[in-house]
Simulated assay, not measured.
Amino acid sequence: MRFAILCIWIVLPIAAYATYSVYGLPHMIWSYRYQSPGGTRDPLAHRYYLDCTFTGPYGAFTVPAENGRCGWFQFFKPVSA
């Protein structure tokens, strides 16, 4: 049991670093642009999202929406100059 707990303390930071290296850091949705056939004031109209802006530790990233939808968060890596 003690060995399993020791392994968790070693494996979790390695897994977190590997995730960071592969995917980057998470950024939350900040804003979006959409197209609505029912008008912009109808809250029940189906919205087709065009692009999504995510904000996080590396700044803001605007990406095209996937299949007309925006997720709550997305992973980004820093932009190298």
Rank of each mutant, 00 (worst) to 15 (best):
A4Y: 09
A4S: 07
L6C: 15
C7W: 13
C7N: 14
I8Q: 04
W9V: 15
W9S: 13
L12H: 09
I14F: 00
A15D: 02
A15G: 05
Y17E: 15
A18Q: 06
A18R: 00
T19W: 04
Y23H: 09
Y23F: 09
G24M: 04
G24W: 03
H27V: 09
H27G: 10
H27F: 11
M28A: 08
I29K: 14
S31V: 02
Y32Q: 14
R33T: 13
Y34R: 00
S36I: 00
S36D: 07
P37A: 10
G38R: 10
R41Y: 04
D42L: 11
P43I: 07
L44F: 12
A45P: 01
Y49E: 14
L50R: 14
C52Q: 08
F54T: 04
T55Q: 15
T55H: 15
A60F: 14
T62S: 05
P64Q: 01
A65K: 01
E66Y: 02
G68S: 09
G68V: 03
R69M: 11
C70Q: 06
C70V: 06
C70P: 01
C70M: 09
G71P: 12
G71N: 14
G71F: 11
F75K: 02
F76Y: 02
K77Q: 08
K77P: 02
P78R: 13
V79S: 00
A81M: 06
